[in-house]
Design a protein around this nucleic acid. Structure first.
Lengths: 211, 211
DNA sequence: GTCTATATTTAGATAGAC
DNA sequence: GTCTATCTAAATATAGAC
């Protein structure tokens, strides 16, 4: 009985936190940290402002939680890189995965971009540790592929930057892309075209023939 | 005499406006529109806050002026595209010009990115007119190169997006790149490496051999 | 766990002396 | 043209009844 009550409370908490985090991601993405207000997030979430402060004591804490959920998604996508047996599959799948994230989580991508542009007040430590280690590992992997003659001797670091830049552009600059598409979001076929072009140009650019 | 006095006043105005615009660009880039405060901009410019309001009545007006100065720079760079006789020179020079802008005007690039991410409240009209026309013109030019067999039949639109994304990434995500470079900004040699890699991968990726 | 009312701080903007 | 003092609005955050 006590357990049931406790579980019900837990569920309410989990549901409301998820609701608030979703609204916050959207508002932080569209207005930036400084432009976002607790009132607006509350309105989007459909809750009174005081409830936000009940679940997340400060705006800063809420923002931090939003950012954390994002790089978890990115880390998951990074695995396709590891579980491949060559540049065509590994880099190709990584590009596909990143394009899919841009399509499915555009708000998250924008929050990340904004955070980095503002000198990463929240994720600086993570950039220096996790991302740095991940990048070095991927660079080593790419260098081994180059040594085996499976792709051109490009600078792996700048190749990674190009992949990040190009794939995230479809989320971060989605509004510009939409405007240049007569005000309409890319449809399924257009996303497919985008994905194919990005993958083909980059793979050919580094001397890899697609599978 | 009256003329001299008038000119002196004009100079003071011009100088102070330039001083404020420079400080504002920096602050808007680092804090976003919502995070930037007139007080902070005034501090960076070394002027009392009231002076900002004397030269720029509202924060909105000041921001608008900052954004305007940026796309003038971008438009100038776009000309190298036109005055070329083929994809190797035209696209190669455009990439170089955009990389150089990312290096010299990182703050401006960030303000632009932020503006687009927030659904372009100030530049929407300009996106729909000037940028749209410019893009269509460049697409037609690239399509003519493709028809002449001077490059692969890629989708010109997504090629342009890739160039924008990759070159601007070096400004917008400069902090992340710096962090992954042991906390140091890219030096001359590293910028050269970046530029060479970007140009080479993209040109090869679209079937163009460099000059 | 919810929500109205409110305390407190800080922002954008202006008045008015110099 | 400069700058101190100040107004007003809006933001974060909390108190306390329910």
């Amino acid at each position: 009985m006590a357990d049931t009550a406790r579980n019900r409370k837990k569920n309410i908490r989990a549901e409301n936190e998820a609701l608030i985090l979703q609204a916050a991601e959207k508002v932080f993405a569209e207005a930036g940290y400084g432009g976002a207000t607790m009132q607006l997030i509350a309105d989007v979430a459909g809750l009174p402002k005081a409830n936000l402060h009940y679940y997340f004591p400060t705006k800063d804490e809420l923002y931090r939680r939003v950012v954390e959920t994002i790089f978890q998604i990115w880390l998951d996508a990074a695995n396709v890189f590891e579980n491949s047996d060559g540049p065509a599959e590994g880099i190709g799948a990584y590009i596909d995965a990143k394009m899919e994230i841009s399509r499915r989580h555009p708000a998250g991508s924008k929050v990340w971009a904004s955070e980095v542009m503002h000198r990463a007040p929240v994720i600086q430590e993570w950039l220096e540790s996790t991302l740095n280690v991940w990048t070095d590992g991927r660079i080593a992997l790419i260098e081994s592929w180059i040594a085996e003659g499976r792709m051109d001797p490009v600078d792996p670091r700048h190749l990674l930057y190009m992949i990040w830049a190009t794939t995230q552009h479809y989320a971060d600059f989605g509004h510009q892309i939409e405007t240049l598409n007569n005000g309409a979001p890319l449809d399924d076929a257009q996303w497919e075209t985008a994905k194919t072009n990005v993958r083909r140009i980059i793979l050919k650019g580094i001397g890899v023939s697609p599978d």
